[in-house]
Computed example of a mutant assay.
Amino acid sequence: MKNFKTTFFFIRLPIAISLAGHGLVRLPKLEGFSAWMVKQMEPSILPTSLIIPFSYILPIAEAIIGLLLLIGFKINYSLYAGLILMSILIFGSCSIENWGAIEAQLLHSFYLFGLLWFKEKEELIPSKTN
């Protein structure tokens, strides 16, 4: 691919904005978001002692992963972190049978996987020097 860096930036842009946006809009209202998440997770088998700290960490993790993807810093690690985060969210959504949320989380996961696959395929192609 002739201009991989530019192409790769534009294909990772939507997921980077999605993750950063999820995190950044929640940061100013962190206590309210935490209270909402604890309420949502009431039917879960997960203890509140795990949900509360996670509800404070989640927006920060989303914002950081999104911003790292946006600026292109440590892309592979950022993609792996995004996949781990989505897996945790999917587990939580399963625990309360929130199947609608799982669809969105799976879509994010497939997008992150696609970026990882695309990047690794490009790394395998020998560069042409003329």
Score class of each variant (00 low, 15 high):
residue 107 L to G: 11
residue 29 K to E: 14
residue 83 L to W: 06
residue 103 E to G: 04
residue 56 Y to L: 06
residue 124 L to R: 09
residue 130 N to G: 07
residue 17 I to C: 10
residue 32 G to E: 15
residue 130 N to E: 13
residue 68 L to H: 11
residue 80 Y to C: 00
residue 125 I to D: 13
residue 70 L to F: 13
residue 29 K to R: 05
residue 87 S to T: 14
residue 122 E to A: 08
residue 1 M to L: 04
residue 115 L to C: 08
residue 34 S to D: 13
residue 34 S to C: 05
residue 100 G to D: 14
residue 109 S to P: 03
residue 42 E to R: 02
residue 129 T to A: 06
residue 59 P to H: 06
residue 50 L to W: 10
residue 80 Y to W: 14
residue 44 S to W: 07
residue 36 W to T: 03
residue 34 S to L: 05
residue 7 T to S: 12
residue 116 L to W: 15
residue 58 L to V: 02
residue 79 L to C: 02
residue 85 L to P: 05
residue 50 L to R: 03
residue 105 Q to K: 04
residue 66 G to K: 04
residue 61 A to Q: 05
residue 112 L to V: 03
residue 52 I to R: 15
residue 43 P to I: 00
residue 89 L to N: 15
residue 87 S to M: 08
residue 113 F to V: 04
residue 128 K to N: 14
residue 30 L to D: 02
residue 120 E to W: 01
residue 62 E to M: 00
residue 45 I to S: 12
residue 113 F to K: 11
residue 74 K to A: 07
residue 32 G to V: 04
residue 110 F to P: 11
residue 13 L to Q: 13
residue 97 E to H: 08
residue 115 L to Q: 12
residue 48 T to R: 09
residue 20 A to Y: 09
residue 83 L to D: 13
residue 45 I to Q: 14
residue 13 L to I: 06
residue 31 E to W: 05
residue 94 C to F: 13
residue 65 I to Q: 00
residue 14 P to D: 12
residue 23 G to S: 05
residue 4 F to A: 04
residue 4 F to Y: 15
residue 37 M to H: 01
residue 69 L to Y: 10
residue 47 P to I: 00
residue 5 K to I: 01
residue 86 M to E: 13
residue 126 P to V: 05
residue 30 L to Q: 04
residue 98 N to A: 09
residue 29 K to G: 09
residue 12 R to I: 10
residue 47 P to H: 09
residue 48 T to V: 04
residue 60 I to Q: 03
residue 30 L to G: 04
residue 125 I to H: 14
residue 95 S to A: 06
residue 122 E to P: 04
residue 32 G to M: 09
residue 34 S to N: 09
residue 49 S to N: 10
residue 73 F to S: 08
residue 50 L to Q: 11
residue 22 H to G: 07
residue 86 M to I: 00
residue 125 I to F: 12
residue 50 L to A: 09
residue 109 S to N: 05
residue 61 A to S: 10
residue 12 R to H: 10
residue 39 K to N: 15
residue 129 T to G: 10
residue 82 G to W: 00
residue 88 I to M: 11
residue 96 I to S: 09
residue 112 L to T: 07
residue 85 L to S: 02
residue 28 P to R: 06
residue 104 A to K: 04
residue 72 G to L: 08
residue 8 F to I: 07
residue 20 A to Q: 07
residue 98 N to W: 12
residue 35 A to V: 08
residue 126 P to Y: 15
residue 44 S to I: 03
residue 126 P to G: 10
residue 74 K to Q: 14
residue 66 G to L: 02
residue 41 M to N: 10
residue 51 I to R: 08
residue 25 V to F: 10
residue 127 S to E: 14
residue 76 N to F: 09
residue 63 A to K: 00
residue 48 T to M: 09
residue 18 S to N: 11
residue 82 G to K: 03
residue 117 W to L: 05
residue 85 L to E: 14
residue 124 L to W: 07
residue 23 G to N: 02
residue 50 L to V: 03
residue 27 L to Q: 05
residue 17 I to S: 01
residue 24 L to I: 11
residue 10 F to G: 04
residue 47 P to L: 03
residue 122 E to L: 00
residue 58 L to W: 05
residue 109 S to K: 02
residue 52 I to V: 12
residue 16 A to H: 02
residue 41 M to H: 14
residue 100 G to H: 12
residue 55 S to H: 07
residue 48 T to I: 07
residue 109 S to G: 15
residue 39 K to T: 15
residue 19 L to I: 01
residue 101 A to P: 07
residue 63 A to S: 01
residue 106 L to G: 08
residue 75 I to M: 10
residue 44 S to L: 00
